[in-house]
């Protein structure tokens, strides 16, 4: 059918729009595809350049417990252990504080306080990690050395987790810095999911005579739990890959930490410290291999978190009505 048979007296549309729409569609689709391409580009660069280390060690790299530059022996366990340990500390400390704050923000805080407090938490998330690291190096670390760690050693030293010299630049300090950094992530998203609990749920509990806390515990938290879980995994993702703050506080020692007072190294801090001054192609390739492991872990964690959160906070904007 010929479009020109449709004619209108005054406003005649430009013929260019068909091409305009087509070109526009191709351009934006291209940009979209580029975003997807980025993931593959990142993975393929890491895979090709970790080849040498992979050929030498295979998957045994993942269980190699030594990283010895002078003997050219490279295993990833010290860094995987450091990464998991610091992240675990971060979640153990950060999770309760973040959830507590999120609950406070959604149900307990007076209304006038909620907005400003929410913004402050966002601000906490926006502070650059190198600034956290700097603060950790100058204030948190020395405070840990002189005050917190001696107390821990005295009271909990028998557990073995707090043995060794209290230096303040160790796995524990890095974990605490990470806790401070993951709290805003966990708190902000948990708050969002708590706020998304339908009012009817709360009112049902209130009408049964529940106290404030009982409403939160029975109606709010269970309803929001998969969102809170997603938020926590997202926080974990941030902790696993955090670089500057950890590099500046963990002590940078290529060995498996034996206590929370040990100096250690995470995968991220290993990369920051050794990528540009590796002693040879094998070490370089091993570092890239470690980066590939970090990428795989964080992809896994982030995909899991996003799948959870997408279900909870389903994107609904832009629909009719």
């Amino acid at each position: 059918m010929d479009p020109s048979t449709l004619s209108s007296p005054l406003p005649r549309p430009r013929k260019g729009h068909v091409w305009g729409d087509r070109i526009f569609g191709v351009l934006v689709a291209g940009a979209g595809l580029f975003v997807i391409f980025l993931v593959f580009a990142i993975a393929s660069i890491l895979i090709t350049q970790s080849r040498l280390a992979f050929d030498s060690y295979g998957l045994a790299f993942l269980i190699g417990t030594r990283w010895d530059v002078s003997h050219e022996v490279y295993g990833a366990v010290p860094f995987i252990a450091g990464t998991l340990l610091t992240s675990a500390i971060a979640l153990a400390i950060g999770f309760p504080l973040a959830i507590g704050s999120a609950i406070f923000l959604t149900t307990e805080a007076p209304r006038w306080l909620r907005g400003p407090l929410g913004s402050v938490i966002e601000l906490l998330a926006a502070i650059p990690s190198v600034v956290y690291g700097f603060w950790g190096l100058y204030f948190l670390g020395p405070y840990m050395r002189t005050t917190v760690e001696p107390i821990l050693a005295k009271s909990l030293g028998w557990t073995g987790a707090f043995s060794g010299a209290a230096t303040g630049t160790d796995v524990l300090t890095a974990g605490i810095i990470l806790a401070i950094m993951v709290i805003p992530t966990i708190a902000a998203i948990s708050r969002e999911t708590l706020a998304a609990v339908p009012v009817a749920q709360r009112e049902a509990a209130i009408s049964l005579g529940a106290t404030n806390w009982e409403v939160t515990r029975t109606a709010m938290v269970p309803y929001a739990r998969s969102g809170i879980f997603g938020a926590t995994i997202l926080g974990l993702g941030r902790a696993l890959g955090e670089t500057m703050a950890v590099t500046m506080t963990i002590g940078n020692h290529d060995a498996i930490p034996t206590s929370l007072f040990s100096q250690g190294q995470t995968i991220a801090s290993l990369i920051a410290n050794e990528l540009t001054n590796s002693s040879g192609p094998l070490q370089y390739s091993a570092i890239i291999y470690a980066a590939l492991i970090l990428l795989a872990i964080s992809l896994l964690v982030n995909v899991a978190a996003r799948l959870l959160l997408w279900r909870v906070l389903r994107v609904t904007g832009g629909t009719t009505e």
Binding site: P3, L6, S8, V18
Partner: peptide
């Protein structure tokens, strides 16, 4: 008499 499902939707919407 012209089937609007067969022609350019933008032209249709102008009419």
């Amino acid at each position: 008499g012209t089937d609007i499902l067969e022609v350019d939707p933008i032209q249709v919407r102008r009419r």
